[in-house]
């Protein structure tokens, strides 16, 4: 092979391969030191901790990892990423896994988190910006969590913290087209 020949693109059908294609990460670089989990503020609530999710990706346990609710507890605070000794970037990995899960089947995400993300994206798609009152109402309808936090809204209104009408931007069609273009790239609809 001469030097000018392109390197053949290695098609790796495994979950690590898919993650590599989506995020550029090398999951094999993880040596399971657990520093990500040790510093994770949500680890205590996660059925599987970040290093265990990573291990499952290494072991190609696609279904187990994509259906794990721990994915949806990650706050992307990047503590893991900034301290990872091997620069594996667990936060980016979890984002990638959520994206794959959302593509495969949005119901893999727990109802409340799914409802929140969908309601949030819906706000952007419809108005170009997030209209908080609309977000809250939409979230409550989507999640069925009608009574949670019901006591906060009056306080927020009282303090002028909630706008009553959405603020549509001029370029909202532009934003909607960005959504559509991204859906085209992903090959499916972004649930919102």
């Amino acid at each position: 092979m001469s030097a000018s020949e392109p390197v053949p693109t290695h098609h790796d059908p495994s979950l690590s391969g898919e993650i590599n294609k989506l995020t550029g990460l090398n999951v094999a670089a993880c040596y399971q030191c657990g520093k990500c989990s040790a510093g994770c503020p949500m680890a205590a609530e996660m059925p599987r901790k970040p290093h265990q999710l990573l291990r499952l990706v290494q072991l190609n346990q696609r279904q187990a990892v994509l259906s794990d609710s721990s994915l949806w507890l990650c706050l992307t605070c990047e503590t893991c990423t900034s301290r990872c000794p091997n620069q594996v970037d667990p936060a980016r990995l979890i984002d990638g896994l959520r994206e794959l899960a959302f593509q495969q089947d949005p119901t893999l995400a727990p109802l409340k988190q799914r409802a929140f993300h969908q309601a949030f994206l819906h706000q952007i798609k419809s108005h170009g910006r997030v209209f908080e009152l609309g977000l809250v109402v939409d979230y409550k309808l989507k999640s069925g969590a009608l009574l949670d936090d019901a006591l906060q809204a009056p306080g927020m209104l009282w303090r002028g913290k909630l706008a009553l009408m959405p603020n549509n931007i001029e370029g909202k069609a532009e934003v909607r087209r960005i959504f559509e273009a991204c859906e085209h790239v992903a090959g499916e609809e972004i649930p919102s």
């Binding site: 990650c74 994206e99 170009g128 910006r129 997030v130 370029g171």
Partner: peptide
């Protein structure tokens, strides 16, 4: 327009 916040990057990079 909205930056996308966590909901965008959690679902579509």
């Amino acid at each position: 327009s909205c930056c996308g916040a966590s909901s965008a990057h959690a679902t579509n990079h």
